[in-house]
């Protein structure tokens, strides 16, 4: 995969600042996601991994800095340009976000009906192909409530792929999955990316799984990038960056949770011990 790496990324973040209230999520981060690659974005919970996807999708805008998707500045794009860009993106939401009133088949058909004038027979065929790709053809008449978690995730994946996107964004695709459906998803993400020539971003905190399929890995924590490169390169960077080592090892003690509970307990108890 690394031979398809190009100097300009498909998606680039350029000195992006983003804050929610007083909490700084990104403090001037630069990131580059290569065309045709699977990039895993790793980091502890609450470090703004989902926010990253929302920045790329233009659902939130950075306070400063630029977010570029295939040369278009998402962070400044007007609504029309943004919607045109989103038609080229597929997003797998954390809980699938399937439309609960529609069957699996209708869910997959939804973006097709919204954005094309294809006749119903053709839409039916495309839906069958997409469901076949994720192994859910037989579930097309079921409602999302009747699916298991793993099936719902795959149904949502079929829907995200309906318009043949060039970019796929996965938000915590492995969260809450049993080992088998996790394996199925991992293989799907890799296969779809290679077969369709996609650019994929997988946001997750499952280090081992993500490292096993990713071409590139970006590790974020505390509003900045603490590791970047191929999985092997990132593993090699752990020496210089204690936070990275802690995260990759899953160690309980380290710089990542050092800031927690700085003040002595007696202060919160009102015993005045902190004074």
């Amino acid at each position: 995969m690394s031979d398809s790496r190009t100097t300009t990324g498909m998606i680039e973040l350029d000195a992006v600042h983003f804050a929610r209230g007083d909490q700084v999520i990104f403090d001037g981060v630069d990131m580059r996601f290569g065309r045709g690659e699977v990039t895993a974005v790793l980091g502890p919970s609450g470090t703004g991994k989902t926010t990253l996807l929302r920045l790329i999708g233009g659902q939130v805008r950075p306070a400063s800095g630029r977010v570029l998707v295939d040369g278009t500045e998402v962070s400044r794009a007007r609504r029309k340009a943004l919607y045109a860009l989103r038609r080229r993106m597929g997003v797998l939401f954390q809980n699938g976000a399937l439309f609960t009133d529609l069957t699996v088949g209708e869910n997959v058909a939804f973006p097709l009906r919204a954005h094309s004038r294809l006749d119903e027979a053709l839409i039916r065929r495309i839906v069958l192909f997409k469901l076949e790709a994720v192994g859910l053809r037989s579930a097309r008449d079921k409602y999302p409530a009747e699916l298991s978690g793993g099936m719902a995730r795959r149904a949502a994946l079929a829907r995200a792929m309906a318009l043949d996107p060039e970019i796929m964004l996965y938000d915590e695709p492995f969260a809450g999955q049993d080992p088998v459906s996790m394996g199925v998803l991992l293989r799907l993400i890799r296969r779809l990316n290679d077969a369709l020539g996609l650019t994929s971003i997988v946001v997750t905190h499952d280090v081992k799984e993500a490292m096993s399929i990713a071409d590139q890995v970006i590790v974020i924590a505390g509003g900045r990038v603490i590791g970047q490169g191929t999985p092997d390169e990132v593993r090699a960077q752990r020496e210089q960056e204690p936070a990275l080592a802690q995260f990759l090892d899953g160690a309980a003690d380290g710089p990542l949770n050092a800031a927690e509970d700085e003040a002595p307990l007696s202060v919160d108890l009102g015993l005045g011990g902190g004074q």
Partner: peptide, 11 residues
């Protein structure tokens, strides 16, 4: 359940 966000991301 992020259905509105999903709509937005489907343009």
């Amino acid at each position: 359940t992020e259905q509105l966000a999903a709509l937005e991301m489907m343009a």
